[in-house]
Simulated assay, not measured.
Amino acid sequence: MRKLAEIEDLSGLVRTALGPGCRAVAVDRLRGGSKKGVYRVRVDGAPLGSVIVYSWAEAENFWPAERGTDSADPFAPASGLAPFLAARRSLDGLGVRVPRIFLADGGRLRHRADVAVVEDVSEDTLEALFASDPARAAAALRDLATVTDRMHRHRVARYGRVDLLERGGTASGVSCEQLVLDRALRDLGEASERDRRIAAVHGRLRDRLHGLAALVTPRAEHGLIHGELGPDHVLVDAAGHAVLIDVEGLMHFDVEWEHVFLRLRFGAHYPVLSRPGLDPRRLDLYALALHLSLVAGPLRLLDGDFPDRDTMLRIVEHNLTEALALLPRRP
């Protein structure tokens, strides 16, 4: 049985963050968190009506442990207070809106795990606003386009997660495209073991990945990308600005990786975010790799006890269909 946080676990933490007169009156664990717990804590006795608490407790991580994980791999699981704070520093430096921090504790003095108490920007994500308030969503989407432009134009020679680069480390691999290919081949192998439809075309998918990778030419600069920038990872503040959340995976990488994810997750809204000058060969390779990742990853997560199983299965089915559709037709 997982021990998730309850009101008595978070009351003292929130009081420390907001002042001695503050009292927690309700706690809700928000849906969707698979690597950390995300809690909305409603309070009395403070200027704010609520805050968000991030908890990186081991019990909050639903992903099965992976053997031999290389922490220098940009695609290694990104979780914890340190990558969160490094990502915020990088985004703050570019003027990108992220929730304000009221308290961050990596010493486990106030809680059994690393925690952060942050601004509760809004109860609605951009994804929800597309349905409930299209005009407000459209304005926020335009603001998000400005934000992603600013990030993607921030070019550096090295690729890798910002927390690693900030410490002076060097990312694994020889290039972004080779990392993507290697990961896609691993994902293909895992997916084939779990789904007979992928297994039936394993050889064709493998050959397609190698063929697409062979067409990609070297690159010397890399932009700053969120890594999982869907409309569920964007909040909208009272001024209508896009606010990025779940930023722990922030990294310098090929911006085409971000764009294939944006295209997938934003769907009909993607044209606002699309930009000229992207490398079509990278887009082709990265699109197939992303679909395979979004088959293998959710299936791996479902090996455990992640509660929202139906959502994961829908992700698997959609991306499996898309991956198969990218195979060349046989003569």
Results as ranks from 00 to 15, higher is better:
H259C: 02
A268L: 11
M251E: 04
E258I: 03
R263C: 06
R263S: 14
S274W: 12
L250H: 11
Y270K: 06
E248M: 02
S274F: 08
R263G: 06
F266P: 06
G277L: 07
E256R: 04
F261N: 03
W257I: 06
L262I: 09
F253P: 03
F266A: 09
D254G: 06
G267Y: 10
D254M: 04
F253Q: 05
S274P: 01
W257L: 11
L250K: 10
L278N: 02
V255H: 07
D246A: 03
V272C: 07
Y270V: 08
D279H: 01
R275L: 04
V260P: 10
L264M: 14
V272M: 12
P271G: 12
R265V: 08
L273R: 06
H269Q: 15
H259M: 00
Y270R: 06
M251N: 00
G267H: 14
E256P: 05
L250Y: 12
Y270C: 12
L278S: 01
E248Q: 02
G249F: 13
G267D: 11
L262F: 06
Y270F: 15
E256K: 04
F261M: 07
F261D: 00
D246W: 00
R263N: 09
V255D: 10
V260R: 11
L264G: 03
L273I: 03
V255M: 09
V260S: 13
P276N: 06
H269N: 13
W257E: 11
E248F: 04
M251H: 05
W257N: 13
V260T: 13
F253S: 05
P271M: 08
L262H: 12
H252F: 15
G277I: 04
R265I: 00
P271E: 08
H269L: 09
P271L: 09
F253V: 05
L264N: 13
R263P: 05
R263D: 08
E248L: 02
P276T: 06
